[in-house]
Every structure is written in C-alpha cells, then in structure tokens.
Design a protein around this nucleic acid. Structure first.
Length: 202
DNA sequence: AGTGCGATTGACT
DNA sequence: GTCAATCGCACTA
C-alpha cells in the first residue's frame, strides 16, 4: 500500500550524475504535478536513458533552441512535442553543459486519478499513464514546464519512493532507429502499467 | 523557403 | 497485427 505522506522531494545530490544510472534510480520514485487543476502523482515504472554521444538522443547534434534543457544540471525537465500530438518528458541527467536525459515512459497512477481520467477522456486505469505521451497528458505536462527544476518546490517535482520497488530489469529502447541494440530501457519487472510490447514487460 | 522525419497514439483489420 | 494523422524543428539551398 502507498502512503502519500511519506513522499518528499528528491534532493539533487541524491541523483546519480549519469543518464544510465539515473534511469535505473528513478524506477519506483514518484512524479508529482500540482497545478490549478489539482494534484496528480504516480510511481515511475519505466524509463529510458539517452546518454551523451548517443545518436538516438536529442542532444546528439549539440545545443539548440529547443533542446537546451537537456544541458541543464541533472534534475531539470526537458519537455518536447512530437508527432504533432504528444508531449514527452525527460529528466536532464548529467552535469551542467553536458546533454543527456532520461525519458519517462510509464507511470503507475496514484493520486488525482479522476483528473487524469478527464484529461485522457478514458476511465481505463491501464491507459492513463502507459506511454510517454499518455503520462504527460494525464499529468498536464507541456512545453510551459520545460526547463523546470524538478528538485524544487513547484508545479512539477520528483519525489521519493512511496513504497517498495520491485526488480528492475532492462531491455532495448522503444521506437528508435539508431543505437537500437543498447539496453537502455529500465522497468519494474511485471508491473501492469508498463508500455511497449508484452515481451518487453516480463 | 521548402523538405523530411520522428524517443507516438488511436483507430481499424 | 497494420497504418495514417499531425507539426515543430533541423537541415539544405
């Protein structure tokens, strides 16, 4: 069972200074969004690392107007808009000036489920936060939160684990064409709220 | 100024 | 399982 009162903001010094380590570290931790609409939160159950020099990463071609948040000190939000329909959220993952991120791919809904249902226009618990575009929709995350410090009080922050974390497994990343063989996707084994094909959930 | 392409989703066979 | 919608951005000229 989950106890919301035990969730506290993660301190930056607790975050590993490395995309791959951070991606594993974030499994089981909390994501909390508090806006005018209300408070929603969930348990991070699936992430992907996009380390420095990774040809699949958005920082690969260097600093640009839209990807600058990836180059912020670890623990900042990088939010971008893809396919004309979906926002995706990353956590910047290295020291300042180095471009790297951890993509949040799935979250287990905890608080604010009715609000998530309205934003997603479905009452299927499974489909609320399963997938990078879906979880940002449920949480109300868009480009206005790009660059936000997630280790600080504010509308969006990272919290400690609200309960025990299961076995963390890894696999290839989903939906990319370059460096597709690298095992940089992390997930809580067997969790029912994971995205991706069944064979990548066990 | 024009072009091509996604770290996806939802609808459909 | 397949497939099209959709648009911001980087790249070419």
């Amino acid at each position: 069972m989950v106890d919301n009162r035990s969730i506290v903001i993660l301190r930056r010094r607790d975050l590993p200074v490395d995309a791959e380590s951070l991606a594993g570290f974030l499994i089981g931790k909390s994501l909390v969004c508090e806006t005018a609409g209300g408070r929603v939160s969930g348990r991070i159950v699936e992430t992907e690392a996009y380390p420095p020099g990774d040809a699949a990463g958005h920082s690969f071609r260097g600093l640009t107007r839209s990807n600058h948040s990836l180059f912020l000190e670890r623990g900042h939000a990088y939010v971008y808009f893809a396919y004309g329909s979906s926002h995706m959220m990353n956590v910047s993952a290295e020291r300042a000036g180095v471009g790297a991120g951890v993509l949040l791919r799935a979250v287990e809904p905890l608080e604010g489920i009715p609000l998530m249902e309205r934003r997603r226009n479905t009452e299927k618990l499974h489909d609320l936060c399963r997938g990078p575009g879906r979880l940002t929709q449920s949480f109300g995350i868009d480009r206005s939160l790009d660059g936000l410090d997630l280790c600080k009080e504010g509308p969006l922050w990272l919290g400690s684990a609200a309960g025990p974390t299961g076995v963390v497994a890894r696999s290839v990343r989903i939906g990319i064409t370059r460096e597709k063989e690298r095992l940089l996707r992390f997930y809580e084994r067997g969790n029912p709220y994971l995205s991706g094909p069944l064979r990548l959930r066990a």
